[in-house]
Design a protein around this nucleic acid. Sequence first.
DNA 1: ACCTACCTGGCC
DNA 2: GGCCAGGTAGGT
Length: 265
Amino acid sequence: MARDLRAAVVGRRVTSVTLGHPKVLRFPVPEVFAAVLPGRRVEAVTRRGKFIFCALDGGEDLVFHLGMTGHVLVCEANTEPARHTHLRALLDDGRELRYDDARRFGRILLGPRSTLEESRALPALGVEPLSDDFTAQRFDAVLRSTTRTVKAALLDQRGVAGLGNIYIDEACHLAGIRPQHRCHTLTRTQRAALHAAIPVVLVSAISNRGSSIDDYRDVWNAKGGNQERLQVYGRGGRPCLRCGTTLKHATVAGRTTVWCPSCQR
DNA sequence: ACCTACCTGGCC
DNA sequence: GGCCAGGTAGGT
């Protein structure tokens, strides 16, 4: 999404802004948001964990988090907005940057990054799994410091940033580790396997343009293809694609979790 | 470390 | 009508 958005909006200037539901904008208040954003040019688009950052020429970032059902869209300004559109930012090329989110679990932020961090609107995030910082040592430190399940630890964005329910189950399957395994009882070999599996799963999902199981769409409102390639997520009760054993499913750390009782220990 | 609330929509 | 859903945040 960051790559697509970068190609679509870097160099564009925001000419006017329309806000929808007030709760989606977490920072600042709508009056300030609507006063600051118009006239700003997008200089860069980056990602950190599940947050997308549009760096603006005034030193602020326009930030999106999709929650469960959020969509960041770029479309022609004259197209009819979807039912739950919470931001319309008209651009100087006749297109519009939009944020749409039915459940409103996502969020929009605007401000200098330091301000967003200090106000806690932008939470502290753990190591980036697709960066050079994601070393076996860093990952081991995250896992050894807790007695929680692997599922719970990896859902916590303060340890490793950017993993969610789908890709945790996929990484655990690839690594041969049960999501309900307690972190402090993992062997060094198991930690290494999980460390290796996480970037493999993420890079693969990105190359397949994301998992559009239900709501995910890219900035052009197109579905991704990775939902066709998931090995365990959503496949409870069906055969493991590696060994044929029936996949089990249960709630772990409050989330639906699927694993292979044969491949995963 | 764990649990529930926060929301809407789609499916049975 | 009830249940489920890709994620947090805040309470216990």
